Computed example of a mutant assay.
Amino acid sequence: MAKRVLVVEDNELNLKLFCDLLRAHEFETEPVRDGREAVDKARAFFPDLIVMDIQLPHVSGLDLIEQIKSDEALKRTPIMAVTAYAGREDEDRIRAAGADAFVSKPISVARFVDEVNALL
């Protein structure tokens, strides 16, 4: 059975890239374009992993990570943050919010896939 990955990304090209990459590696994906829907989608989809953009309109990816990690049904789900914020302080903040891994944009395809596999 394919591992399930929820992809939260507002940029349509990045969302397509992440989902296509994951599907090419035989993961089942559920795209989420609006971060305000992420927690409800995660509860309904039961992902094995969440790939989360940090810079989202309407809601911060950091806030979403904290919400997911405080949700009893979702708190054990690993989260991989994918963001253009690439400084050391940014990574520390993202990990402090609860992210299990961090990949900076623009992504390296090999590193992205390696991180996904390491989390699963």
Results as ranks from 00 to 15, higher is better:
Asn14Trp: 09
Val103Arg: 03
Glu91Lys: 14
Gly61Met: 01
Phe102Pro: 13
Ile107Thr: 11
Lys16Trp: 07
Ile107Ser: 11
Asp114Leu: 01
Val59Phe: 00
Leu15Gly: 08
Arg43Trp: 09
Thr29His: 09
Arg93Gly: 07
Thr29Ser: 08
Val113Leu: 15
Val116Phe: 05
His58Leu: 02
Asp63Met: 00
Asn11Trp: 02
Leu15Trp: 03
Ala73Asp: 11
Glu89Ala: 13
Ile65Ser: 10
Thr29Asp: 04
Leu64His: 00
Arg111Val: 13
Asn117Ala: 06
Asp53Arg: 01
Leu62Asp: 01
Phe27Thr: 09
Ile65Met: 10
Ala97His: 06
Asn11Met: 09
Met1Val: 10
Cys19His: 04
Glu115Gly: 00
Asp48Arg: 02
Met80Cys: 13
Glu28Val: 07
Glu9Ala: 08
Arg43Val: 13
Ala42Trp: 08
Val39His: 06
Arg33Trp: 10
Pro106Cys: 11
Glu66Val: 03
Arg93Met: 13
Val7Gln: 05
Val103Tyr: 07
Phe102Thr: 12
Asp34Pro: 06
His25Ile: 03
Lys75Arg: 15
Glu12Pro: 00
Lys16Ser: 11
Glu26Trp: 09
Phe45Trp: 07
Ala118Phe: 03
Asp100Tyr: 11
Gly61Leu: 01
Arg88His: 01
Leu74Ile: 10
Ser60Ala: 01
Asn117Gln: 13
Leu64Ile: 12
Leu120His: 01
Pro47Gln: 04
Ala42Arg: 05
Thr77His: 06
Ile50Met: 06
Ile94Gln: 07
Glu91Thr: 09
Asp34Cys: 12
Lys75Ile: 07
Leu49Tyr: 02
Val82Thr: 04
Leu74Glu: 09
Ile94Asn: 07
Arg43Thr: 12
Gly87Tyr: 05
Leu6Glu: 03
Asp90Lys: 00
Leu13Asp: 14
Gln55Tyr: 00
Val103Asn: 07
Ser104Ala: 15
Glu89Leu: 11
Arg23Met: 12
Ala38Met: 09
Arg76Gln: 14
Leu22Ser: 10
Pro47Trp: 07
Val5Phe: 02
Glu89Asp: 15
Val8Thr: 04
Gly87Lys: 07
Ala2Glu: 11
Val32His: 05
Thr29Met: 09
Lys41Val: 15
